[in-house]
Nucleic acid binder design. Structure first.
Lengths: 252, 252
DNA sequence: TCGATTTTGTTCTCACGTTCACAAGCTCCT
DNA sequence: AGGAGCTTGTGAACGTGAGAACAAAATCGA
């Protein structure tokens, strides 16, 4: 997903603020590293220092920063506070973004309490669920409201970001409602592929996929060139049934 | 992270089971799509069908599958059950992986209850926390145990995967303990960059980073070529202080 | 048996991302 | 004032990934 942002082919490409997607994904990491350095009372840092703190190599970091402009000083390094502000501004977290969370199960509950969301730049304006037994429950300083109020809330609070923490089943429907209510960015925790119209950005966080990627590498380590050879299908024309039930369905 | 797996430069490269990382990351998606098709009673699917279900394009899907071998039939498509098994085996989820979760706060709590972890292929063998007031608490059918028991548990249950859901502060220390106890794959939810020795794989899930990436794109949409111009540092030689406190620190 | 049709597996090309290496530019010391 | 020593910013080389396009192989119908 995350459709290629307007890259008009024959455009002048002046400065055409086109920061590569890979770089955008690292800017928040740099921001966090800068905040940590700042909290330690460090006023200036070289690309080497920053790169170490962010867990990348210094050449990549310098190239990434160069897309934003020339914010360093040769022979010296980067001013921590200044660079921090520039990155924050570029990302857009110098302003507040209103966020709704839909689906107050275990995960939604956790996110509602998660101080990470409290990170300056984001403000949870509503917790929504369609289950009447959950509506009215207090979580932190918020009260769970009915999903039916979505449109009203989005309009009133200019909500542009929605977080989906429902089970897989209702996720697409919830997504559609969010989009038609005017939400244009979605963070999806439900284990399904969501379809959205162009212009809407969607990102996915999927725990079981992460685990499976780890498992793949883990298998490499233990097996080490001794992967059980392919069964080489004995009489493979029909359907193989009674296979161990693996993978996917994480639903309801 | 995820260091390039043994890619000996001048090696014969026979079949050298070298599946590109980008492909590995998509295999779990295909697996889920296949499981969904299987549950719908569909026995055969073309690359086009599968690609739609997985949210990718068919050329990419075919190329991905070709790294595993030739499991399709030209003119027909793929046998859903057979392909599902092959991918599951390649990923390594036909066997069970023992997992420990460290840090039973809101998020750890949610993960412990999360049915997604119950996905066949992974088995939570322990919930650990260093806080004595949490130890002994029952969550689902498990009881929270003391972090001090880590080494014992890892050895007894051959744990190879650890999940860190502690605050940022203790995360690196927990990580070190996991590694020295013998865990070789780590899924980190704490908002810090963890350092691990070679041979240990680490993956990171970071909610606030995902939100910030969305915010960046969101800013583009609303501002649309009208990003507030750079303050162009008035007398920038010292430290700029009193900037809005943005970003990073999501700690404790 | 043979040709039409379908769909895979693969090759080729292009775009993107990473890394190297170095010139440009700043500071500090003599 | 001038040179030595750092560190940034960037051009160029390299590697990886994506997509188009097509040849190879299987089925089906006549």
């Amino acid at each position: 997903m995350t459709p290629a942002r307007s890259r008009r082919p024959g455009a002048p490409t002046r400065t055409e603020r086109g920061i590569p997607e890979a770089t955008v994904a690292r800017l928040p990491v740099y921001l966090r590293a800068l905040t940590a350095l700042s909290d330690s009372g460090i006023a200036t840092a070289s690309s080497e220092d920053l790169a170490t703190a962010a867990g990348v190599n210094s050449a990549k970091l310098r190239k990434d920063l160069s897309y934003l402009g020339s914010y360093g000083t040769r022979g010296v390094g980067y001013d921590v506070e200044y660079l921090r502000y520039q990155i924050a501004r570029e990302i857009g977290v110098t302003q507040d973004w209103a966020v709704v969370i839909v689906g107050i199960g275990n995960l939604g509950h956790a996110l509602a309490n998660y101080s990470g969301f409290g990170t300056r730049g984001f403000r949870i304006v509503a917790l929504l669920d369609a289950d009447p037994t959950l509506v009215g429950e207090q979580i932190g300083d918020m009260i769970v409201r009915d999903f039916a109020e979505l449109e009203e809330i989005v309009a009133a609070d200019r909500v542009s970001i929605g977080v989906i923490t429902t089970p897989a089943g209702p996720a697409q429907e919830v997504c559609d409602r969010l989009v038609s209510a005017g939400v244009t960015s979605i963070l999806n925790f439900a284990p399904v592929v969501l379809t959205v119209p162009t212009g809407v950005d969607i990102r996915k966080v999927d725990l079981s996929i992460e685990l499976q990627i780890l498992a793949y590498h883990e298998q490499r380590k233990s097996g080490e060139a001794a992967l059980p050879e392919v069964p080489e299908l004995p009489a493979m024309n029909g359907v193989v049934s009674d296979l161990p039930s693996v993978g996917g369905g994480v639903g309801a």
